[in-house]
């Protein structure tokens, strides 16, 4: 199985552990990735907040490059890239006038022949839970995982949705296949505060704090995420939330792919467990899933 691959800027920077773990997990499942040539940033929120055409044009550059490489799909990991590329691609595919205008702007001849996929749907629907289960070497037995989907992964217009709006289950299914115990909790799609750190730091502490607190109250050992911004907000502001709430939280925030890498017993540089601020090693060692010595 082969997919076009769009890593995205965050995965080249602060979300590197997401890229390393996702690539290693896919390789372990026999999936081949071909990086989209000279891909550009999706523009994230700043592009669509300030321009109607820019987010579509940025999507078009990646889609056109993939089409030229003969790729039929682009696999994304970051929820924001996924949302932007999928939306832009869909707009072009359904509006010939827009496609023509964008082609002129970006100096390309894109025909709309590429499908944008998210890693979670690829793992569940293309590779399949059985294949994933078969690859597990160290089942995550006894590990209670709260899967946090945030906003961008699921909140798409009807025809673009890959999972339920209010109660998505893709990551839960993956965690169960890896032997973990997904927690049934109500804050799967609550907002983490996104980029509001700048305008309203206290809003981010309030929102991310309530997500972590709910995960803890529902019995979670760990939070699994699929977005670099969610990861940063839930992990980085946890100590601020703890002071605000006056209680200890201590819930590590890992990408779901890092947990799959642990279950697959992949190398330490695929698991990247030393990147978080809330240390995941104690709980993982307690469940006998890792030997801490490897990371010292």
């Amino acid at each position: 199985m082969k997919f076009g691959y769009y890593p995205g800027c965050s995965l080249e920077g602060s979300g590197a552990e997401y890229a390393h773990s996702a690539e290693a997990v896919l390789a372990a499942l026999g999936v081949e990735l071909e990086e989209v040539d000279d891909w550009v940033c999706c523009g994230a929120t700043p592009a669509h907040a300030t321009s109607h055409l820019l987010p579509v044009a940025l999507s078009a550059i990646a889609c056109a490059a993939a089409e030229k490489q003969g790729l039929e799909t682009i696999l994304t990991c970051c929820a924001a890239c996924f949302s932007r590329l999928k939306q832009g691609n869909h707009d072009m595919q359904n509006d010939p006038a827009l496609l023509a205008q964008i082609n002129e702007i970006v100096e390309e001849d894109y025909h709309g022949g590429v499908a944008i996929l998210h890693l979670a749907e690829v793992l569940v629907r293309r590779i399949g839970l059985q294949a994933i289960q078969r690859r597990v070497r160290k089942p995550l037995t006894g590990l209670k995982v709260a899967c946090y989907y945030g906003c961008l992964l699921t909140r798409m217009p009807e025809p673009l949705r890959i999972d339920s709006l209010e109660y998505p289950t893709l990551m839960d299914d993956l965690m169960r296949a890896a032997g973990a115990e997904p927690v049934d909790w109500p804050f799967k799609t609550e907002c983490c505060g996104a980029a509001l750190t700048l305008a309203r730091g206290e809003t981010v502490v309030r929102l991310s704090g309530s997500v972590v607190e709910m995960a803890k109250d529902c019995g979670a050992d760990i939070l699994a995420v699929a977005c670099p911004l969610c990861q940063a907000n839930l992990d980085m502001y946890q100590s601020d939330s703890e002071s605000k709430l006056g209680r200890q939280l201590g819930i590590p925030v890992l990408y779901f792919t890092q947990l799959l890498a642990v279950a697959f017993d992949l190398a330490a540089d695929a698991q990247c467990l030393n990147k978080g601020i809330v240390d995941p090693l104690p709980v993982l060692a307690d469940r006998g899933l890792i030997e801490t010595g490897v990371y010292l």
Partner: peptide, 25 residues
């Protein structure tokens, strides 16, 4: 004031994309 801060952030983000094609954090 909140709006101006958010707008400055959007500008800085897009300036990086315009310059490098990628976001440099």
């Amino acid at each position: 004031p909140d709006g101006a801060r958010v707008f400055t952030f959007f500008q800085a983000f897009l300036d990086s994309v315009r310059e490098f094609g990628r976001l440099s954090e």
